[in-house]
Design a protein around this nucleic acid. Sequence first.
DNA 1: GGATGTGAACGACTTCACAGCG
DNA 2: CGCTGTGAAGTCGTTCACATCC
Lengths: 222, 222
Amino acid sequence: MSKGDISRETNGTEARLSRASVGRLSLYLRRLDELLRDGSLKVSSSQLGEALGLTDAQVRKDLAYLGHLGQPGIGYPTRELMTAIRHTLGVDREWKAVLVGVGNLARALLRYRGFQQQGFRIVALFDSDPAKVGQRIDGLTVQARDELPTVIAAAGAELGLLTVPAEAAQSVADILVGAGIRGILNFAPTVLRVPPGVSLVSVDLTVQLEQLAFLVQLGGDT
Amino acid sequence: MSKGDISRETNGTEARLSRASVGRLSLYLRRLDELLRDGSLKVSSSQLGEALGLTDAQVRKDLAYLGHLGQPGIGYPTRELMTAIRHTLGVDREWKAVLVGVGNLARALLRYRGFQQQGFRIVALFDSDPAKVGQRIDGLTVQARDELPTVIAAAGAELGLLTVPAEAAQSVADILVGAGIRGILNFAPTVLRVPPGVSLVSVDLTVQLEQLAFLVQLGGDT
DNA sequence: GGATGTGAACGACTTCACAGCG
DNA sequence: CGCTGTGAAGTCGTTCACATCC
């Protein structure tokens, strides 16, 4: 498979993408979609930034990483920009994911249209609760946890979505890693450890809520 | 009011808390809870950091904001540290929240024990779908959206959890703000605008998933 | 000795400002 | 002209290293 490296290819522009920049690329993509639907074939950095609360300079810096797409005096070609962002983010292809832990959050993820749209497909469900195994949800059958390795291999899934309780999260993560999963989106309120070569993104709702409490308590600016 | 920079008064210690630091405080609190259960009455910065993947220096910098709680040669007193963090985060009191948009994600939030534990209480549910209005979920009755202002005022709710579709998010946010809500936790995949004085924390699942795709595509380190 | 608190060095990200091109 | 691309300056956050104190 492609052996990853952070450096850029074609032009000679050497640049890095911070986590924050990557997050903003997602936002640009979404906004570009709206702008394109409104008929904008060209878009300027300030246009793109304003609805997202970003400065034009910030937008240009981020987009510079994609190569020299901008046209001075004109702006960026909407469609080409979207294609380039999709390619950079890696969402110009399909990603297969397995979902472990079938609760309400899992159901929410399953039904969430945004995922499908961006090329993410959930191909299998797992749960340790025997009462849930065998249930059908949105066309998928819940499977037992010890089937994880074989199913992942058979389906060629690369991503794992973790919606199990905190206590189980690390051991499930280990199993996923052992089964060859390359990235985990963790919703369990724990800090997970994964070996190098496996990517991890965590969404910790408790942390977010406490962040909000803190900000409100301050008498809160944004 | 204060713009992005947060001064403290009490002790004479002048310090700032970044968003990142606040997030880490939540993690410390959770870890301290475990350590206390294991019987650790004192804890060192390196102990605290190791399970979270943080350096000892980082931990000390964060905790320095709380005042001079550490004892050289010994560490930090577990219980006092927890009390101080809770106070700083604002989770040493109860926060009442309303939840708007009753889908699977809302159900997941309702049932999530972590919230209750940290003092967050969901006191009302709202949905614009007439079919959902009147349903009872976990002891709460779903109410119509135009009841928002009166119910918020009557209940004294300060936080709003937004789990509506992207298209509706901004208008619901505006209503919440108009009703006197002081902080919003937004799950809709849109960038919201709120006036100064109202706090906003967003959890954008599409962005997180795309982040993961990007990292995996890189051939992914953490 | 063992661990804290903290200036200072370092590094990462953002904003500024302007040259250059369509 | 308008808008991009980008060095330079500025800001913010993290790591280092060490004086300090129990």
